[in-house]
Write a protein that binds this DNA or RNA. Structure first.
Lengths: 190, 190
DNA sequence: CAGAACATGTAACCGGTTACATGATTGG
DNA sequence: CCAATCATGTAACCGGTTACATGTTCTG
C-alpha cells in the first residue's frame, strides 16, 4: 500500500485540504494512483493521529473553511524510509486481456466495439498528457538562480513520470490496434 | 472484479484443479492477473455452489486425489454476459512513479539501485515472454483441417495478449532507462 | 530421512469501493 | 431558485493479502 506515501508526496509538492487532494488524485497524481475522497479523508485522519501531517484551519471568504494539511517531520521520515524500502515490480492487471482471451469462447466480433472504446479512452488520455507536457514542461525552468537544484529536481522528476504515462498510452494504442486487427480476422471469414 | 471470469477462461482453455489453476496464475494468465491459491479455492467453491462449474473427483497414482473443475453451462453464460458488459479503461497503479516523484524530497540517487532492480525484473520478464512466444506461437497452427476456426481463434487471441505483455515490458525498459538518465543528472552535479 | 512438489483448505485483517449524508456559497 | 462547486464526513461491504494448518508422495 502506498496511498499514505502518495499523499505525502503530494503534500510536499504543495500543502492542501482533503478536498484538494481528492482533486489532484483525479489529475496529476491520479495518472498512476487513484483514490476517492472518502479514502483520503480516512487516511488523512490516521496520518494526523500518527503525527505524519500537521493541520491548520484556514477560514476562507465565500467558501467553507478548509483544513490545510502539511507534512510533519515524522511524515517526512516515513516517506524517506519507504523510499529506501525495495518494492516488488508489480504486474499489470488487465481486465481487457481476460476478455480478449475469453472472446475465443464467445463471438469475437462482439468485443470489437469494446476495444474501440478503450482505444478512444487511451487516445484521449494521451492527448491530455501531451497538452499537460506542453503547458508545464516546455519553456525555461521556473527556478531562479538562487534556489535551483531542488526545484529543478522536482520538475524533472515530475516530467519523467509524465513521460512514462505518455509512453504507456502510446503503447496501449498501438497494441489495441493490433488487437483490433486480430479480432477482425475472426469476423466475416468465420 | 474478474477473478471468476479469469478462472472461467482458464478452465475453458483446459479443465483443471484449484492447484493447477494457482500454477497457471503464476504463469500465462498470471501475466495480467494474479491470484493466490487461497483466493482461488474460495472463489472456486462459490462458483461451484452457484453452478458455474462442475467438479469431478480424479484419483491419481502417486499423488493426492484432485478435484477437476470444468465450466458448466451457467458459467459459460456468466462469462458471455460479462464479455458483453462494458468495463472502464483502468488506470495503472505505479508505486514506482510515486517513489520517483518522492525522490525530489529525498536523495534522488538512492533510488537508482531500486530502478535498476525493476529494470532487470522487466528485462527478465520480457525474455520469458519472448521464449514463450517462440515456443508456442511459431511454426504451423496446430489445428487440423476439420475443426479449424475455434482453435485458431484461441491461439491467435492468446498470442495477441502475449504481444501486449511484450509491448508493455519493452515500453517499461525504455522508460526506466529514461528514469535512470534523469536521476543521474541529480547525482554528482548536485 | 529430509525437502520439494502436490493438493486443499480456514481465519483474520485491511484497503478500496459504493452508498449515504450534510451543509455553505456562487453563478446562471 | 436551482445546479454546480466546495468541503467533510460515516457505514457497510467485499475482494485481496497474509498467516496458519494438514497430509501425501517422489526424489536425492
Amino acid at each position: 500500500m502506498a496511498l499514505e506515501h502518495a499523499i505525502l508526496v503530494s503534500l510536499l509538492e504543495k500543502p492542501g485540504s482533503g478536498y484538494e487532494l481528492a482533486r489532484r488524485f483525479e489529475r496529476s497524481i491520479g495518472y498512476f494512483w487513484t483514490a476517492t475522497h472518502q479514502q483520503i479523508y480516512r487516511v488523512l485522519k490516521r496520518m494526523e493521529s500518527d503525527g505524519w501531517v500537521d493541520v491548520r484551519d484556514v477560514p476562507q471568504q465565500g467558501r467553507p473553511d478548509k483544513k490545510e494539511y502539511s507534512v510533519a517531520d515524522l511524515g517526512r521520515a516515513a516517506l524517506s524510509s519507504w523510499l529506501h524500502d525495495p518494492i516488488e515490480p508489480e504486474s499489470v492487471r488487465h481486465d481487457l486481456a481476460v476478455k480478449i482471451r475469453g472472446a475465443a469462447f464467445d463471438d469475437p466480433t462482439a468485443l470489437i466495439r469494446e476495444v474501440e472504446r478503450h482505444r478512444l479512452a487511451h487516445r484521449d488520455r494521451l492527448a491530455h498528457y501531451l497538452a499537460g507536457e506542453t503547458r508545464d514542461f516546455t519553456g525555461p525552468a521556473v527556478s531562479t538562480a538562487g534556489a535551483k537544484a531542488p526545484l529543478d529536481a522536482e520538475r524533472e522528476l515530475q516530467h519523467v513520470v509524465l513521460r512514462g504515462g505518455i509512453a504507456y498510452e502510446r503503447m496501449m494504442i498501438e497494441w489495441l490496434d493490433d488487437v483490433l486487427a486480430t479480432l477482425a480476422r475472426f469476423g466475416p471469414g468465420r
